[in-house]
Design a protein around this nucleic acid. Structure first.
Lengths: 95, 95
DNA sequence: TTGCTATTTCGATAAATATAGAAATAAAGA
DNA sequence: TCTTTATTTCTATATTTATCGAAATAGCAA
């Protein structure tokens, strides 16, 4: 059984995942390049520690805004367009 | 002079103001009723302490999502539709 | 003036958050 | 096998946050 979660709580969780500048930057890169990103690549691009990037990746994934594909040691991050479509239509264009 | 603020930081601040369920509830009431709300009214409606509501009002106002009109001791809160229009078009319908 | 109502600020607190470095895990390649 | 690369987890820390009750502020009304 699931704990009851209100629409407001769901939306708040989505906004919370987006309430950090580096996470917005990650989302924008994904939106604009339409390719996948790796942890180390983002670490280089944004100049933050890999462990911090991993933490942000986890936050985005847990909110359902992204998904990952694994190949060998590397995990490729991409947008979960369905979540944006279902809960935040048009928002990607606002970033 | 102003501290340089990136678009990502601005958007993150807006999302941060929206990352709390009770603040989303306040925004939704304002959107649906198209009337103003007072601190005490929201305190009664959402069953949270007036000081907590005041704290949320301040967070929303500082982000630019709402504005207040004062009449005697009472402050009336309303949506700042311009901010929604400029930065988050269509978002009100997603809440 | 005195008491009532509305809001904010203050003080305190418990919880969550962003961050980094170190250690752990796992796969690739020499 | 040993080394390098990629990522995650753990530990620690400093900061922010949501919350309340109490006190302060300000206006209204009897």
């Amino acid at each position: 059984m699931n704990i009851e979660i209100s629409k407001e709580e769901k939306m708040a969780a989505l906004f919370n995942a987006l309430s950090e500048p580096n996470r917005i930057r990650i989302i924008k890169i994904l939106r604009d390049s339409s390719r996948e990103l790796t942890c180390s690549e983002v670490s280089r691009l944004l100049q933050i520690a890999p462990s911090t990037v991993s933490y942000h990746f986890k936050a985005l994934r847990q909110a359902g805004l992204t998904q990952t594909r694994q190949q060998a040691q590397t995990k490729y991050l991409s947008l979960n367009t369905e979540t944006f479509r279902n809960y935040l239509p048009g928002l990607l264009d606002s970033l």
